[in-house]
Design a protein around this nucleic acid. Sequence first.
DNA 1: CTGTTAGCGCCTTCAG
DNA 2: CTGAAGGCGCTAACAG
Lengths: 344, 344
Amino acid sequence: MDEPVTRRSRRTRQTIKMSDVAAAANVSPSTVSLYLRRPGAVSKRAGVAIHDAIERLGYVPNLMAGGLAAARSRVVGVVVPSMRNAFFAQTVSAMQGVLSDDGFQVMFGNTDYDDDTELALVRAYLSWSPSALVLTGLHHARPTRDLLHAADCPVVEMWELGADPVDLAVGFSHTEVGRAQARHLIRKGRRHLAFLGARMQDDRRAMQRAEGFAAEAREAGIAAEIVQHIKPASTEAAAALLAKALSINARIDGVAASNDTLALGLLFECMRRGIAVPERLSVVGFGDLEFSAFSNPSLTTIRPFGDVIGEEIARLVLAAVEEDARPARPAINTGFVIVERGSA
Amino acid sequence: MDEPVTRRSRRTRQTIKMSDVAAAANVSPSTVSLYLRRPGAVSKRAGVAIHDAIERLGYVPNLMAGGLAAARSRVVGVVVPSMRNAFFAQTVSAMQGVLSDDGFQVMFGNTDYDDDTELALVRAYLSWSPSALVLTGLHHARPTRDLLHAADCPVVEMWELGADPVDLAVGFSHTEVGRAQARHLIRKGRRHLAFLGARMQDDRRAMQRAEGFAAEAREAGIAAEIVQHIKPASTEAAAALLAKALSINARIDGVAASNDTLALGLLFECMRRGIAVPERLSVVGFGDLEFSAFSNPSLTTIRPFGDVIGEEIARLVLAAVEEDARPARPAINTGFVIVERGSA
DNA sequence: CTGTTAGCGCCTTCAG
DNA sequence: CTGAAGGCGCTAACAG
């Protein structure tokens, strides 16, 4: 009666296969196959019989056999820097939601901002003959790019727009985001700006925002500093950045943060130091995280549409599968909006 | 010179296969296969020749063919309620990290707290002959449970410990978390407790925490209310819950929140209403989110070890694959700690 | 340690 | 609309 230590060895079970269903339904296996792929292409009678047999037998198709024969699997490989990042979690989540409705599965992996890891993941996904590959950003190591160009499936690069995508790009311009941040601060009467960034070495897109910010300020004839902190966003990073910015120019009255986590840290630091926000200092974030509306003052920030990116990609992938081709269309700009709240 | 609309049709490319590598290395295909699976089991000479041939030809193994022949794929199916939830994102991320080092891929899906979606995902994953299935929690619809019991791969249930797991469980006791929350408040001298929960209908585990909380209080001879709000955690939910709790018992001086998002909301609501935290009211959260340390006062909370859960599961899966069996061992308790900060 | 031999379960022409 | 035939690329005994 005791539970055995080992429940069941791998080869013990025998699964029901398509030919079993065919036999039970009195049709040939290829008719079952056809029914499964295009139910309409089979006579009503056969369809019903097959459906019943599947139910009765509890048939589960073997997707590896199917994929092998078709030289294509209903798998989409997704590569993100980090799933712990709420942005990408949201996007991947949304993508998975619409893809799974069409019977597609997502395989995903984190690169942790490492090019070699990205390459390894792309290699791994490629060996599943995926229906599409989705990567984050436009930058990839050379061998990765080569693989992607040689891949016989569509490649989607997300969360960044720019020159020379492999196939498709879905996202928005981070330069424009930076410009929007600067523009907003200037519109609020701020004349001494700074962009504060945490761990921007790893994050090309944060860097692009900083550059857009600086360019917009420059064109408006306003000075703007870019101040960086090596370590990731935290209360300490925020404190260090604020101190550094103010020491460079004590008159700074408007700052953009590389992301909301940092922006929130700045808000708390300001509170601690008795710096009035937004009277003395305006703060603009990026990301519109869950907590950005909670703070006091609440955070003015930029909202990207991470879920839209995911859905849009899913739609593109589905369309590409339909056409059986790698589309080369203009990129899709999912845009962003500025969410005006208390801090700026 | 223009970019064509269609880049490459699916069947145009022909991939190089194992037999090509074998020919190039002057060995038989099975030796290549063996080399790929157990490099040590092949002579040095052959190994080097094969390695070179693979590099030179840019061979990418076809994992579907391999999986079909082996009746098993190096895929782990992971089902979570929502990837947008930082807890699960962290766990899945950690799991993916260690699994991919061993050449395993994770397929993941969100259930959005829906039993039918969970069933569909389990079905889908099963058709890939996965090395393991990882689900969240111990509760599943009947047909799902049946499928899981019949599955010929290990099944891991995570983020919850309790009676009757399918195979393995990795997580901690939410009842104990609730008890710890109550105990902490009592130790701080609080005598009028309440557990405030947002959207607990969907979240069995939050409910378990509430029950543990109430049980601990009861055993200590202290009154404890459980107050619920239908909608998910937000500033509004926090305000409503606090009002309701205080209207039930104005003397309430210690509250536990079903999660940190709600707890943070409570902190802001207290600030708004001029309720001193922790002097007048102590607040304990659950989750130890990124922002829990940021608030002012900072949030005392319970830290689960989401990443440890993920790593532990990965290790179990790897071990089970090694043994080629479904292990039936005692569950793994990853525990939790109370992080004492300003709010309680 | 290496090669030979059979499939794995399904898809995809192609006839009927 | 249905069935028969062949093969997708690889693994897993087994024999040498």
